[in-house]
């Protein structure tokens, strides 16, 4: 009797942990987020050549591998631009706001990911 109670408790604890884990798993890794949300404009490798960068668009997506361009931005600038869109750094609204789509932690991870793409920091 005591043993079956023990097993029941163990199983329900394991299940609770599993369910809790699944909820936390809502946040995705920076490479996954980049591929899903950003690559459509910035390209899979960040060169600014995603499928939305058509010839007739008035502004090209930023080349995230350009140390020259990305060096103009502080980490804070990048984080604001991801959350509030191009308007945050007085750039084109073709850069959309992801503040309600990504969590703050996901944005922070994206900033480091983009820093790796340009291999640069703010000048």
């Amino acid at each position: 009797m005591a043993r079956s109670l023990f097993i029941t408790v163990m199983i329900s604890t394991a299940l609770t942990l599993l369910v809790a884990g699944a909820c936390v798993a809502g946040a995705a890794s920076a490479p996954d987020n980049y591929r899903f949300y950003c690559a459509q404009c910035h390209g899979l490798e960040g060169y600014g050549d995603g499928p939305n960068a058509t010839k007739n668009q008035p502004v090209e997506p930023r080349d995230h591998t350009s140390a020259y361009e990305m060096g103009k931005l502080t980490d804070e600038d990048i984080s604001y631009v991801i959350k509030d869109g191009g308007i945050a750094t007085s750039k084109s609204t073709l850069m959309p706001p992801f503040g309600k789509t990504l969590t703050d932690a996901e944005v922070t991870e994206l900033v480091s990911y983009i820093r790796k793409l340009c291999n640069c920091s703010a000048r």
């Binding site: 499928p51 939305n52 058509t54 007739n56 668009q57």
Partner: peptide
Amino acid sequence: GRVVGGLT
């Protein structure tokens, strides 16, 4: 009347 815009 030209088709413009992104593709995704």
